[in-house]
């Protein structure tokens, strides 16, 4: 009897462990999003499409940052969907001090804000810069790298929906191979985006030896909030890359946003990991592994892979190898040590 008890330690959060809230969990460990007092950094009335992953990811991240800083937060935003759908005159959805300057300079503007806070002796006020994948991995990359290199006290969050959605779904350097975009149409001998060498910004960020780098997904709120809170507890340049599906750009159902994000991680294509000072310190094991097809199939941008006649099977296999390489590289297939809540 005593053996059994020892073996099956009661987890006081069994029911709905991975849900947003959990009345059985200790107050201190509850999610920000489950709280009635969450800041709603982005409030209702914004013009994001139905089921927008970015609207969700941004609220998750900023609400967590707001809790971590006790409301002492300033947000900087690159041009992009998030900026456009939150602040068309005469209405803004933001409830935190917020500035939008340009497409490619969010990291630098944030550096400036952080410098101002430092010089004014208001270092309790923290700065979060945010941009989409285009504003981060492409046009904003120079400023971002500069911010990293100077180790400015900024948390930069990239909301990655894998293309330029605001301008009508064009390819970015974060667009995955084979994905159809308006500039990588699904026609010709190699439909969709090409198999390039990839541009893994989290790894590039790590190469700057900054104190903290993490990937997160709207599909795992607890992990995301934990990473944001951890990032806010650190001074210096920090980077979090959040996976945010785009129903419009990906051709997925609006209700599938979180499911697709979940599948991206569970197939290995979007690994969830974190690193400190250039070294990987942890990854989130895959809980229910799925083949990449399961992730690809609900998205119209990959529909050409499943058409008869092409070499979709071989190309899916190539994507599967990418996923498998991630699984091996980040050690994603192992027993979870502890429920990550």
């Amino acid at each position: 009897m005593s053996d059994m008890t020892a073996e099956q330690k009661v987890k006081f959060y069994q029911k709905g462990t991975f849900t947003v809230g959990n009345r059985l969990v200790d107050q201190a460990r509850r999610s920000v999003q489950g709280s009635m007092e969450r800041s709603n950094a982005i409030t209702s009335g914004h013009r994001a499409c139905q089921g927008c992953g970015e609207a969700l990811g941004a609220r998750y991240a900023l609400d967590a940052a707001m809790r971590a800083t006790e409301g002492q937060l300033i947000a900087v935003n690159a041009t992009g969907c998030l900026e456009v759908f939150t602040t068309p005159y005469p209405e803004t959805s933001w409830q935190v001090p917020w500035i939008h300057s340009l497409f490619g300079n969010a990291a630098a503007v944030a550096s400036g804000v952080a410098a101002a806070m430092r010089v004014k002796g208001r270092e309790q006020v923290r700065v979060v810069a945010q941009g989409g994948d285009g504003g981060t991995t492409d046009i904003g990359f120079g400023c971002l790298s500069g911010m990293f290199e100077r180790n400015d006290d900024v948390l930069y969050i990239c909301y990655d929906n894998e293309a330029y959605m605001n301008t009508g779904v064009q390819r970015s350097s974060a667009t995955p191979p084979t994905a159809r975009t308006a500039t990588t149409p699904a026609v010709g001998p190699e439909p969709g985006n090409v198999f390039g060498t990839g541009k893994n910004l989290p790894l590039i960020a790590m190469a700057h030896n900054i104190p903290y780098v993490a990937t997160a997904s709207v599909s795992d709120l607890h992990d995301l909030e934990r990473k944001v809170e951890k990032a806010m507890a650190i001074r210096g340049a920090r980077y979090i890359h959040i996976f945010v599906p785009c129903p419009l750009g990906w051709g997925s159902a609006s209700h599938d946003t979180i499911r697709i994000a979940r599948l991206a991680s569970e197939c290995g294509l979007f690994p969830l990991f974190e690193a400190e000072h250039g070294e990987i310190t942890g990854s989130l094991p895959i809980r229910r592994k799925v083949p990449v097809e399961e992730y690809l199939r609900p998205q119209k941008r990959f529909a050409h892979l499943f058409k008869d006649g092409g070499d979709g099977v071989a190309r899916i296999a190539r994507l599967q190898r990418m996923a498998d390489a991630n699984i091996a590289r980040f050690g994603l297939q192992r027993e979870a040590e502890e429920t990550p809540l």
């Binding site: 009661v10 987890k11 006081f12 959060y13 069994q14 029911k15 709905g16 849900t19 947003v20 809230g21 959990n22 009345r23 059985l24 999610s31 999003q33 489950g34 709603n40 982005i42 409030t43 209702s44 914004h46 994001a48 089921g51 927008c52 992953g53 609207a55 969700l56 609220r59 709120l221 946003t257 979180i258």
Partner: peptide, 22 residues
Amino acid sequence: RRCLSCGNCFECDNCYGVCPDN
């Protein structure tokens, strides 16, 4: 605590949390 509460809200806050529109 293994119970799934099938069919009846157990106030897990998921709907509250996952709504992109608050």
